[in-house]
């Protein structure tokens, strides 16, 4: 156990010495990995933020039910009765045409237009909140309401949210593809930097093999190097995203104030951050493993 610890400790120390021994090239490698990783991760963060933002709206999809203009109070109470009796409806609000017009009148932009009108062009309407927000339930309600008397138009206000949802899904797929591609890039980058490191230590590897080092022993410090480099790249990516969000939030706050809402982009949560670090370390490890194994394989096949 002591010996095993000592071996790993020595390997780790040697790795850190190597990283510190060529600070500039280590820094550049880490930056390249960081930039490569920050791309898919950054897009993922943005998508997550859009999701939380749209979640605020999609929470309770509304159905707007417009009556035809010749509908009288009898028809209104008939519709009211049907809405009350419908199990798919949670609650609803009647918006008489006078109230709708009043809303417009309050709006500075429309008040001139409204006052110039000789009669109210708006119909009576109901705003209906569904009990269940599943697409199927909403669609059923929509179809049923269309069949009711004196109903001119039924608008499903959740349509845009559903469209956004499918766009987000598309975005997730695209990000996943990008993440896989750049994950490969990370492996290749590590493969190459480790290969260069191996070339500078060819003699050490040769001597170690001659005096009885197993391939595992020879691989170990390079695996540490690959994993550490990957991990540092992951941390760099996290830093790049944090800095990017910081600058974007400044601009977004101004924008949000114009819309009189409050919204800031959130960074990766702890679990996602740890996952990012873990994955980047694993990919670095894999790249290093491939690199050393290839070198060892060449050594072995060359000595026969």
């Amino acid at each position: 156990m002591m010996a095993w610890l000592s071996i790993n400790f020595h390997a780790l120390a040697a790795t850190l010495r190597k990283l510190a021994g060529s600070p500039l090239s280590s820094f550049f490698s880490i930056c390249v990995i960081g930039i490569a990783l920050s791309l898919p991760t950054g897009i993922f963060v943005l998508l997550q933020n859009i999701e939380t933002l749209s979640g605020n709206f999609t929470g309770s999809p509304q159905i707007s039910l417009f009556l035809s203009k010749d509908a009288g109070s009898a028809e209104v109470s008939e519709i009211e009765k049907r809405l009350k009796g419908n199990p798919g409806v949670d609650h609803f609000r009647f918006v008489p045409k006078e109230e709708a017009l009043g809303e417009f009148r309050k709006d500075a932009e429309f008040s001139d237009v409204v006052t110039s009108l000789s009669q109210n062009p708006l119909p009576d309407a109901f705003v209906v909140f569904a009990r269940e927000n599943s697409a199927k339930n909403l669609e059923n309600l929509h179809q049923e309401m269309l069949k009711w008397p004196k109903v001119a138009h039924v608008q499903l206000d959740s349509n845009w949210a559903r469209k956004l949802d499918s766009f987000l899904k598309l975005g997730h797929v695209a990000t996943s593809i990008l993440a896989v591609l750049l994950g490969f890039a990370l492996i290749f980058i590590t493969f190459n930097t480790i290969r260069l490191q191996i070339l500078t230590q060819k003699d050490e590897i040769e001597v170690a093999k001659l005096i009885g080092a197993t391939n595992t022993f020879i691989r170990r410090p390079f695996l540490y190097l690959g994993a550490l480099q990957g991990l540092a790249g992951g941390i760099a990516a996290w830093g790049i995203i944090a800095a990017g969000l910081h600058f974007m939030n400044g601009a977004i706050q101004e924008l949000a104030e114009l819309y009189s809402t409050r919204f800031i982009l959130a960074n990766l949560g702890i679990r996602e951050s740890l996952l990012l670090f873990f994955l980047s370390a694993c990919l670095g490890w894999l790249g290093a493993w491939l690199s050393v194994s290839r070198h060892l394989w060449q050594l072995d096949s060359g000595s026969q």
């Binding site: 095993w4 000592s6 001597v207 009885g212």
Partner: peptide, 12 residues
């Protein structure tokens, strides 16, 4: 020290 390191010799 290298051969001892390779042979996982007790570091003490």
């Amino acid at each position: 020290f290298l051969p001892l390191q390779i042979g996982a010799f007790d570091p003490r």
